[in-house]
Computed example of a mutant assay.
Amino acid sequence: MLDHFHEDGFISILVYFDLPSHVLQKRVASSGRSSVLRITVSFEEVLDRQEARYHNGEWTAPAQHEVDYLFVINDPNQVELVKQKVISIAQAT
């Protein structure tokens, strides 16, 4: 999918949030939002669907060979460090 962009000189950076379900559920519960964008499903429903697709094998985590830079966040405390790395990459290109 990204080959076209890579051929045009773009680099790809993917930040994959691989957070535990309980962390995501807590964030959804405390967000104060009732729905996602303009669709009528709740954040809870979206999370449930995503987890079901993952557990059914319909979806897999991204692989390093798919992008130029892959960052995996397993803990919310890693966000700032990854953010700084992405900024550094963007400024260097």
Score class of each variant (00 low, 15 high):
Thr60Phe: 10
Thr40Ile: 05
Lys83Ala: 10
Glu44Val: 09
Glu44Ser: 07
Tyr16Asn: 01
Glu80Thr: 14
Val46Met: 11
Val67Thr: 12
Arg49Ala: 14
Asp3Asn: 01
His6Met: 07
His6Phe: 09
Gly57Gln: 05
Asp48Thr: 13
Ser31Leu: 04
Ser30Glu: 14
His4Trp: 11
Phe17Tyr: 04
Leu37Ile: 07
Pro20Ile: 13
His4Asp: 15
Ser88Cys: 01
Val82Ser: 00
Glu51Gly: 11
Gln64His: 08
Asp8Val: 06
His65Glu: 15
Arg33Asp: 05
Pro76Val: 13
Phe43Val: 14
Asp3Leu: 00
Asn56Val: 13
His55Ser: 12
Leu24Ala: 08
Asp68Lys: 01
Ser35Ala: 04
His22Ala: 01
Lys26Pro: 09
Pro62Lys: 02
Ala90Leu: 05
Val46Asp: 03
Arg53Glu: 10
Glu58Ile: 07
Val79Leu: 14
Ile89His: 00
Lys83Val: 14
Ala90Trp: 04
Glu51Trp: 13
Gly32Asn: 08
Val36Gln: 03
Asp68Ile: 02
Ser88Gly: 10
Val46Trp: 08
Asn74Gln: 13
Ala52His: 14
Ile89Gln: 01
Val15Gly: 05
Asp68Trp: 00
Glu51Val: 12
Ile39Pro: 10
Gln25Leu: 09
Tyr54Thr: 10
Asp48Trp: 08
Lys85Ile: 06
Gln64Cys: 03
Ser42His: 14
Lys26Ser: 14
Glu58Arg: 08
Lys85Trp: 00
Gln78Gly: 11
Glu45Thr: 12
His4Met: 11
Val15Gln: 00
Ser30Ile: 13
Gln84Val: 15
Tyr69Ser: 00
Ser42Thr: 15
Glu44Pro: 07
Pro20Arg: 09
Asn56Ala: 14
Glu66Pro: 08
Asp68Ala: 02
Ser21Trp: 05
Asp75Cys: 05
Gln64Val: 05
Glu45Val: 04
Asn74Trp: 09
Arg49Tyr: 13
Ala52Thr: 13
Phe43Glu: 04
Asp68Arg: 00
Asn74Phe: 15
Gln64Tyr: 09
Asp48Tyr: 12
Asn77Gly: 14
